[in-house]
């Protein structure tokens, strides 16, 4: 009997952790102090404005129009990065492709984030049987060979559009963030401030979204940043396989897809190497920012 009492008391003790002040300002400080991360952030801002800015003046249709007189041109003053097998300008495709890859990466990250946050919050906040059931569903989704399932859905969806592509990606990528949010919400709901809200007459929904959610903001920002990098990679991978964007909407992966042709891979580096380098730098930069933010949330690893 005694030990049982002690156990209940002890777990309550552990949950009473002291909170650190405003996470966002710490994050910002850490970001500025970490030169690599700061450089990455500036690079990302520049490339985003550049890509979205320039693509205002580029016509996607013009770039993807086949020009049979200019097939596989090496880089020249007219075609800065040469042309592909359809005589299409690689540089233009690179700009539009980066824009498209970034857009879908951000879109999928936001959608998976939205679903994952709500799902994880509900599961962790209510706990108990609800949590148990919801987490079994997450377990199942986590275990699916999601790459194949996404490809199958992309292949069989009747009217395939960019929206349906991002919805399919979202449907199989929301679980990671849901799990993270859930385990943090499980801790938060035991804290006195959440309990206090109950006694003050706030409804469960209100507590979840106005009391607990703000306390998860650091975790959400970090996770979404790292997810963005992963989603850019996954989208380009799917486009590379031919199950992402259609060819009329180039993405960075589409350009890499041309390298599936051994001739292109071996002899026409200008078609695929710039896209490969760009994906790599994009993902590295986003991850650098994400890792710096992550360090900011963990006081032990903070540099400043």
């Amino acid at each position: 009997m005694d030990s049982k009492h002690a156990y209940v008391e002890e777990t309550q003790e552990q949950m009473r952790s002291v909170k650190s002040p405003s996470g966002i300002s710490i994050m910002w400080r850490e970001l500025v102090r970490d030169k690599v991360a700061l450089f990455s952030l500036i690079f990302l801002i520049l490339i985003t404005t550049f890509v979205y800015g320039i693509s205002l003046f580029l016509s996607q249709e013009e770039i993807v129009t086949v020009d049979l007189f200019a097939i596989h041109e090496p880089p020249s003053s007219e075609y800065w990065l040469g042309t592909d097998y359809g005589g299409r300008d690689i540089f233009g495709q690179l700009i539009i492709g980066t824009r498209n890859s970034l857009s879908i990466g951000i879109l999928v990250t936001l959608m998976t984030g939205l679903i994952g946050i709500i799902y994880g919050l509900v599961s962790g906040y209510y706990g108990g049987t609800i949590d148990n059931m919801l987490m079994r569903i997450v377990d199942f989704f986590m275990i699916l060979p999601f790459l194949m399932v996404i490809i199958v859905f992309v292949a069989i969806v009747p009217k395939y559009t960019i929206l349906s592509f991002s919805l399919i990606m979202t449907a199989f990528l929301w679980m990671g963030i849901a799990r993270l949010i859930r385990s943090k919400a499980l801790q938060e709901r035991e804290l006195d401030y959440a309990q206090a809200s109950r006694t003050l007459g706030s409804s469960h929904l209100k507590i979840m979204f106005t009391q607990v959610l703000p306390n998860l903001s650091s975790l959400i920002i970090v996770t979404m940043t790292l997810n963005l990098a992963a989603n850019i990679g996954l989208e380009s991978g799917l486009s590379f396989l031919g199950f992402g964007f259609p060819e009329s909407t180039p993405s960075l992966g589409t350009l890499l897809g041309y390298a599936r042709n051994p001739q292109t891979l071996e002899f026409r580096w200008w078609v695929w190497v710039p896209a490969a380098v760009l994906i790599f730098i994009l993902m590295l930069s986003v991850r650098n920012v994400g890792e710096a933010l992550k360090r900011a949330t963990d006081a032990r690893q903070r540099r400043g």
Partner: peptide, 11 residues
């Protein structure tokens, strides 16, 4: 509440 640190929402 007992704990004045956790009973007020830090955010």
């Amino acid at each position: 509440f007992q704990d004045p640190y956790s009973s007020l929402n830090p955010k």
